[in-house]
Amino acid sequence: MSILQVEHLKKTFNRTNVLKDISFSLEKGQALSIIGSSGSGKTTLLRCLNFLETPDSGIIRINGDVIFDGAQYSRLSEEEIRLRRLHFGLVFQSFNLFPQYTALENVTLAKKLLLKSQKKSGPDVLRTIDEEGRDLLRRMGLADRMYNYPHQLSGGQQQRVAIARALALSPDILCFDEPTSALDPELTGEVLRVIRSLAQQNMTMIIVTHEMAFARDVSSQVIFMDDGHIAEQGTSDEVFNHPREERTKHFLAGYNKS
């Protein structure tokens, strides 16, 4: 069974249809890249999955369980939404680290608060969370940056902290919204390397990116979005090497030129 199934998702802002009937599924352990020109609805799709936007209609299933159903959504309490969104993690284009906390605190804060609200936190638990946080930061290559504040880190380092922060809650699916778009070109490599290593460890991921070469070899599935539709989807080889749709060919040609 697919870990994620999205069926007929629709989203309208004011009167513009931003997502027009989006359906796709994703298998556990796979990486899905979403490509498409700016304004095609990629960010909105990720935000819907993370409950930052409420779709107008459609269904989202995790492991077969419905976690969102447009027909019933208004009955969910804020508390239920909060727990359901934990299936997903989201790495933002602009990092959005908490400036008053160190890298390690950024990574551990949410889990500490979560366990505290479930009355499960004691000194042992807190110590374990810290240890897990340090492990995650080491995996991100930030062993010597744990006690630095965000403003003392480069953009690439900040984004790697943000990835560790998202991983700390062990989401089923980790979403990336153009994780390298706010970085200087010489810093994109270190972030892409980290995402690539997550793919090798079979982390289930949805990656919105303009790094075509990266998308081509890191992802097993690719979706090309155009004007709120999924214009084409398939394996990386199918979409990048044998695109069927004119729109896809045209979009990819624009990248190959530059």
């Binding site: 727990l83 969104r85 922060r165 998202a166 809650l169």
Partner: peptide, 30 residues
């Protein structure tokens, strides 16, 4: 305070009060 701060907290499963007291308040005071 950039909206990204609140959104980052939400995505990490924090409650609205946690986001206010643990994330936004000190930034506001500063």
């Amino acid at each position: 305070i950039p909206v990204g701060q609140e959104e980052a907290g939400l995505v990490l499963g924090m409650t609205k009060p946690q986001i206010f007291f643990r994330i936004k308040l000190l930034q506001m005071i500063k």
